[in-house]
């Protein structure tokens, strides 16, 4: 047993080293000055410049306002997406109704269109709706996604039909089946969906760039771009900004991935 334990952990630790290295390097770069980054061989250990770099970032951009803007968008988007995608995904997985198959395949097909093809026509629709410059333009088009629905649908297939029938007999209507029965079981799936949605919205760049009109409402990714572009590029400052913008993602991941803890399915699926 211990030999197995050691083997498994060694395997994991080797993997971790590969996975973590670029991130570690990002941290190293943000604690050094630019010349240390380009020195040959490059410095691979932490330096003492982080505070200086941090101050430079804060001097150059309004980091915290952009952070708050982004947090607002991301929280609203993620909440709405979790609700609508899980509702639709659950419906597709557990009910048959006229047209359900066709509609499902139609939805799947939308994922196969190169997404960039639709980007700018969507911008013009946004413009006609008068949403330019508003966060509505960032939030509404993305509240229901084929990716999220497909994911929830695949996951929800595991929910036992007996369970739904029993609940129906107890007087649950269809929304009640979703809310009372499915949602608790879908928790790990929702956690993953929350993580990807959060990241997707957080890192989205082109769409906010074209629909936002006011620098005060810019998201973090847009604001960070303003650090780049001076010719005497202060690389360590850019890396510090990048690192700072990554930290909320890590926190978010830690929060949601706790939902992966096993045990929820027990009882729920037993027939």
């Amino acid at each position: 047993m211990t030999a197995k334990k050691i083997f498994v952990h060694t395997f994991l630790v080797i993997g971790v080293i590969f996975s973590i290295f670029p991130f570690y390097w990002l941290v190293v770069m943000s604690t050094n000055d630019t010349s240390a980054i380009f020195a040959s061989p490059p410095r691979l250990t932490f330096g003492g410049e982080f505070i200086t770099n941090y101050k430079k970032v804060m001097d150059n951009i309004d980091f915290y306002r952009a952070l708050l803007n982004t947090l607002f968008i991301v929280v609203v988007s993620t909440t709405l997406q979790l609700f609508f995608n899980s509702l639709t995904g659950f419906t597709f997985s557990k009910f048959k109704f006229p047209g359900s198959k066709v509609l499902f395949y139609l939805m799947m097909a939308t994922m196969m269109i190169p997404a960039q093809m639709l980007l700018v026509p969507q911008f013009l629709i946004i413009k006609e709706l008068g949403w330019l410059g508003s966060y509505k333009a960032l939030i509404i088009p993305g509240i229901s996604t084929a990716f999220g629905i497909f994911w929830i649908r695949q996951y929800a297939l595991a929910i036992h039909n007996d369970l739904l029938e029993a609940a129906t007999i107890d007087g649950c209507n269809k929304f009640g089946l979703y809310w009372r029965v499915a949602l608790p079981i879908l928790r790990p799936a929702l956690a993953f969906l929350a993580i990807t949605t959060f990241m997707g919205v957080w890192e989205d760049y082109l769409w906010p760039l074209i629909v936002l009109t006011d620098a005060e409402k810019f998201t973090l990714m847009l604001t960070l771009q303003q650090l780049k572009s001076v010719h005497t590029g202060d690389y360590s400052m850019v890396m510090t900004g990048t690192l700072l913008s990554t930290i909320p993602l890590i926190v978010m991941f830690l929060v949601f991935s706790r939902q992966f803890i096993a045990g929820i399915m027990e009882g729920a699926v037993k027939s």
Partner: peptide, 9 residues
């Protein structure tokens, strides 16, 4: 997260 849908029993 998919592994969580496999009953422990």
């Amino acid at each position: 997260s998919g592994l969580q849908r496999i009953p422990k029993d």
